[in-house]
Amino acid sequence: MREFGYDRATDVAGAIALLGADPHAHYLGGGTNLVDLMKLGVEAPTRLVDVSRLPLAGIEVLPDGGLRIGSTASNSDIAAHPDVRRRFPAVAQAVLAGASGQLRNVATAGGNLLQRTRCPYFTDVTKPCNKRVPGTGCPARDGEHHNHAILGASVQCIATHPSDFAVGLVALDARVTVQESDGPREIPLEEFYRPVGSTPERETVLGPGALITGIVLPGLPIAARSRYRKVRERASYAFAIGSIAAALHVTDGTVTEVRIALGAVASRPWRARAAERVLLGAPVGADAFADAADAELAAAQPLRDNAYKVPLMRNLIVTMLSELAEAPGR
């Protein structure tokens, strides 16, 4: 880890100004991912602008019944918040499925969205990696990729986004509020992450110096019956090998509203639009759920060691939708 300067920002404008003054500066939130990457040499900022004490930690109910989660709210505070738990249970469950109690206490909402992939080649500076050093190649494609992407990946990069929280958010149409040097901006989370394409190093649509100030969850009644499920290689404290956030509304035996997002399958939290299209207006039942899963996974491009994710995700989609369809109060 190289030496770096440190400044603690006291307001949003000041934070943006401090960052703009140093071309290799980096915002520091909770640091649970950034400090880790700095120790590994993956990140080498010359200056840290500490935004963790900005007055952005609040979680407030919006007039439409939605929520605004401040970007420096800790993961723990999000998961413990009564309105998140009761009105957006998939979001609370997703947060609780991530990391550990210690890390959730420190990790921020904004930092969670911006965390980097845990691809072992990305985190090892002695290896090539197109995301870390564009143009050096991707050893994962022929190497270790058992937990890599099956959807939306490219020849350049097959890394997955590790967040659970973002999967819950993207299922429920969350938007990211951002302050940039030229003013505020609001971005649907689904559009926040760029497609991988040939530029895996450019992960989001954020401009230089942009600071996430919050996350807006719109007031969707269906969200109160949303759920999140995560599958991993041990019972706790591990990244997903597959996860799903979903909500389902059925009227007279027909699906009238559905939201599905998948985790650990792509470079971003994956909104399963193809599955949703199949389901909307379809008669509820196992056949429709299977058709929906197949429609979403038709585009899957599994590799040698991650092909299991196709049946895994198919089963997760069908099981989750079946449970939601049978749940009381749908």
């Binding site: 845990r118 072992p120 080649y121 290896k127 050893p139 022929d142 190497g143 270790e144 058992h146 290689e233 041990r234 019972a235 706790s236 404290y237 591990a238 990244f239």
Partner: peptide
């Protein structure tokens, strides 16, 4: 159920060379 160091045939190292990658049982297991 959990433990397996994965060797990279190209580089010759253990790819999952930390406690996030090399899974040992947690309390919940």
């Amino acid at each position: 159920l959990h433990e397996e160091a994965i060797l990279d045939p190209v580089f010759g190292d253990v790819v999952n060379h930390d406690l996030a990658g090399y899974h040992v049982a947690t309390n919940a297991d």
